[in-house]
Design a protein around this nucleic acid. Structure first.
Lengths: 120, 120
DNA sequence: TGCTAATATAAGTAACAGCGCATACAGTCG
DNA sequence: CGACTGTATGCGCTGTTACTTATATTAGCA
């Protein structure tokens, strides 16, 4: 299953957003999602399974609860997929020549560490 | 339609990857996709429509041909969505530790299928 | 003014993803 | 041990999505 397929579901995105804050038990996640989407516990559990099986989340058992945590690995792949388009970040929309020049410059400096934090 | 929904389809991703190189006519795009996925021209056209209607691509008519170009705006949103997870980019060692812990647990929890990557 | 090429739309269909329900499994507590 | 909570799984059902075939639209050309 491709990373974008996993992220294509709003429930799974919601789960990941919750996990972005940190570890949460399946119960907590289920509660929030149930309130927000009105779906059943098994439905949430299935989404958690998808996240697990595709490497988006890791699980740790604590007593009878299962604590989920985010694993950013697949998200890194998504980030990598976006790379070729970063050159359009500033370039595409505006007709302003000045902006265009700046975009070009950034494009040239694209080196190993392409992580776009600085682009903002 | 959410950006991730659009990107969830492999044909549309392929189209966007082609467009990342620069402008292409619908015919060129169709030819490549047809060869790679074995689908019909209307099918490709429909995917192009989805890209258009969701702001992933812009169209410019040139004679009887239609030239498509990428519009990175929605991809920027995707990039923004990834932001909260960037803090985990370098924490993969922790994740690995969690993974190992889970592996041990699984001996007990009877996980029948090896959850490598496949899953379909 | 028809004819052809390029592309888009329409209508119908088939496959798949996600849901609820019922239930199974694992750990904890009395 | 046995009851109880937390979580996962199996299975039909259903709505959505993407496909195919057929056709409409628009531009270029003889």
């Amino acid at each position: 299953m491709h990373a974008f397929d996993v992220l294509g579901d709003p429930v799974r995105r919601c789960l990941l957003e919750l996990l972005a804050e940190g570890e949460h038990s399946a119960g907590e996640l289920t509660a929030v999602v149930q309130e927000r989407f009105g779906i059943s516990q098994p439905a949430v559990s299935q989404h958690l399974r998808v996240l697990r099986e595709n490497g988006f989340a890791t699980v740790r058992a604590e007593g009878t609860r299962r604590l989920y945590a985010v694993d950013a690995q697949p998200l890194r792949e998504v980030d990598a997929w976006l790379d070729p388009y970063r050159q359009y970040w500033n370039q595409r929309l505006d007709a302003l020549a000045t902006e265009l020049a700046r975009g070009k410059r950034e494009r040239h400096t694209a080196a190993p560490s392409t992580k776009g934090k600085g682009a903002r």
